[in-house]
């Protein structure tokens, strides 16, 4: 599902964010990406979502070699990936419903279908009663759950999350992680960057450890 072979990323500034990283996730796998701040976690997720391009090495997602994907193909690639950010990236002038509906609007669903799917997604994250609220009126944990609902509403086969619990207290963090476990059980391939080792070590999922842009765990686990 997600394959990296000897991937390196050097930013234009000269910073080598990733050096020779390989990993392989099969459909339905779930893994955590850990490492100190600046280890290259975000960079790795950005490469998979084609927010950045690798300097060296090969990345394949869903059997598609990303090097062959032109600019025009990028949006369609991203529709197969639900991305969750630490700072939510919600649109503040639109309701919770409209935020969650955005991927469906983009993909060209009809209004009735959109209503059905948005409510189903909001129901899964427990925010059905907030559909008319504006994001600013929600707590940080609720905003994060709206972000998750938006990421899953299109039922993408892949979920990427970059420090989704970074701003949350332990209880809320556990709640959010449980949501990801549920979506993984429903069949999604899930990769989560997090340095909350205490929490993720209890979840029984493989960890991909990065240090200064290199993998430091045994490469064969995930």
């Amino acid at each position: 599902m997600i394959q990296l072979q000897n991937v390196s990323k050097r930013y234009p500034s000269g910073q080598e964010a990733l050096s020779g990283v390989s990993l392989s996730m099969r459909p339905g796998d779930m893994a955590f990406l850990t490492g100190h701040s600046g280890a290259g976690k975000s960079t790795l997720l950005k490469l998979i979502a084609l927010i950045e391009r690798p300097s060296r090495g090969q990345i394949a997602v869903n059997g598609q070699n990303l090097a062959n994907l032109r600019r025009r193909g990028v949006p369609f690639h991203r529709r197969n990936i639900g991305i969750i950010f630490q700072d939510h990236h919600l649109l503040h002038d639109r309701t919770v419903f409209d935020n969650v509906a955005l991927p469906l609007v983009i993909a060209g669903y009809r209004p009735q279908e959109i209503g059905r799917r948005v409510r189903a997604a909001l129901d899964k994250v427990g925010l059905l009663h907030k559909e008319k609220a504006l994001p600013v009126t929600l707590s940080s944990g609720e905003q994060q759950r709206v972000g998750i609902a938006r990421a899953v509403v299109n039922r993408p086969p892949i979920l990427l999350a970059d420090e989704p619990t970074g701003n949350l207290d332990p209880d809320l963090s556990r709640e959010i992680m449980n949501l990801f476990l549920v979506f993984n059980q429903l069949g999604a391939t899930v990769l989560i960057a997090s340095h909350d080792l205490e929490l993720i070590s209890t979840l029984g999922k493989p960890m991909i450890r990065l240090h200064d842009g290199r993998r430091i765990d045994a490469t064969d686990t995930a």
Binding site: V61, N62, G63, Q64, F76, H77, R79, N80, V105, A107, G108, Y109, R110, P111, E113, R155, P157
Partner: peptide, 26 residues
């Protein structure tokens, strides 16, 4: 990737065509 996209429930051709108009109107 193409295959996987086809496997999932996607808007039908007709609903897409209508949705194109919807999108413009919207």
């Amino acid at each position: 990737m193409k295959q996987a996209r086809r496997n999932r429930t996607k808007p039908s051709v007709r609903s897409r065509f209508g949705a194109w108009g919807d999108n413009h109107a919207r």
